[in-house]
Design a binder for these strands. Structure first.
Lengths: 201, 201
DNA sequence: TTGCCAAGTGGCGGGGGCCTCCGTATCGTA
DNA sequence: TACGATACGGAGGCCCCCGCCACTTGGCAA
């Protein structure tokens, strides 16, 4: 990302990132940095120099995809149906999180230690999601108290919970559907809410 | 658990388990087995002998609590309000999963490699949950297609997604509430479902 | 073009963790 | 008490992460 870098440094950066993408895809969030270095034909120190900490590497690995998700979100802000737009985007996020190993971990863990780093995956996504969510809320299609962070956390959780299972993608979709419509059957909205409030759930 | 064991073996088992509880509570699911052995005053091989694999250890650590959750579930099967009973139990599970470090990981990961081990946390919990869920479904308080596995996965996901955050417990509760009632505002059940179906989410 | 020097590199050693093997100490019993 | 089965634990192998430091290399100025 820095521009005033030596040519070899940039070359190494790119090679490492390329290898890291494959390795993370293959072994998830805890791929071996050492191994990545080896495969990239580079010393392990170099990997750590370019990406201080596993977090940074994951962030870089997923940043492209995250950008594209944000772009998708932006393109959806003009959609005629705010609610459908939101759901479509959540579906896309779920699909990606469930299929791209390590993504969910990256999402869940960033912003924990660092004081809300500006480029953390979660905050970038939240920024992208917010307009979509706001529009849906204004259209009355989503409860007002639902935040972008809530939705991100829910999707992240679904991805984490299904990671590693066979059929992870379809399970994740199914759980997202449940989450969106609520566990209850249709036509119980009133009863449902009253009881929920009563039991503090 | 085996009865025909040497006295020292049983002693060690108990000591290891006691230490493991503390260590898991302190460091989560990836507490160091080596360290547990050291603290228990035991060789690392002994830990591995009693608990082949981290999974087994976590299972043992949480089994008591899981039993108690199952007992709670059983006591709730007679409750007058099936839906409230289910929600209360889900709340209890969420509270515990969110507060007991490592529990969510244990839940998420068991049954993955092993061919559905009989004593895996998740299957024990599912067995406990099933009657409660069935009763709620029969009372029309829960959609028929919701399985115990679904609910467990959702709660597990919520716990995983909130793990490590400050206020994890209250966030987890909040997300559970959202999940139960659905993301949408009240009174939209019909519209909601139609659209969801239309967008395949 | 040449030479200089900081930016960049990678190997090495320390600290840990997980796992297996195997000689040995201990328990329960005859 | 003596013996055999059972359980123990240390050592060694392998991998990983991390920080240090002497060395190379790329880019700029003369």
């Amino acid at each position: 990302m820095p521009d005033r870098q030596r040519a070899d440094a940039r070359r190494n950066y790119a090679r490492i990132l390329a290898v890291a993408e494959q390795e993370v895809a293959a072994h998830g969030a805890d791929a071996s940095l050492e191994r990545i270095a080896r495969l990239a034909g580079v010393g392990s120190a170099t990997v750590r120099r370019h990406f201080p900490g596993r977090r940074a590497l994951l962030q870089a690995v997923f940043s492209e995809r995250i950008e594209s998700l944000c772009a998708h979100a932006e393109s959806l802000t003009e959609a005629p149906e705010p609610r459908a737009a939101l759901l479509e985007w959540l579906g896309a996020l779920t699909d990606y999180s469930a299929s791209a190993r390590g993504m969910a971990e990256a999402l869940a863990q960033d912003g924990l230690d660092d004081p809300s780093h500006e480029s953390a995956c979660a905050v970038v996504l939240a920024r992208g999601l917010e307009p979509l969510l706001r529009r849906a809320a204004e259209a009355g299609a989503v409860a007002r108290d639902v935040t972008a962070g809530d939705l991100l956390a829910l999707v992240t959780g679904i991805a984490l919970a299904t990671e590693g299972r066979p059929e992870a993608a379809v399970e994740a979709r199914r759980l997202l559907e449940l989450t969106v419509r609520g566990v209850s059957p249709e036509g119980l909205a009133g009863k449902r809410t009253r009881e929920a409030a009563a039991t503090r759930v």
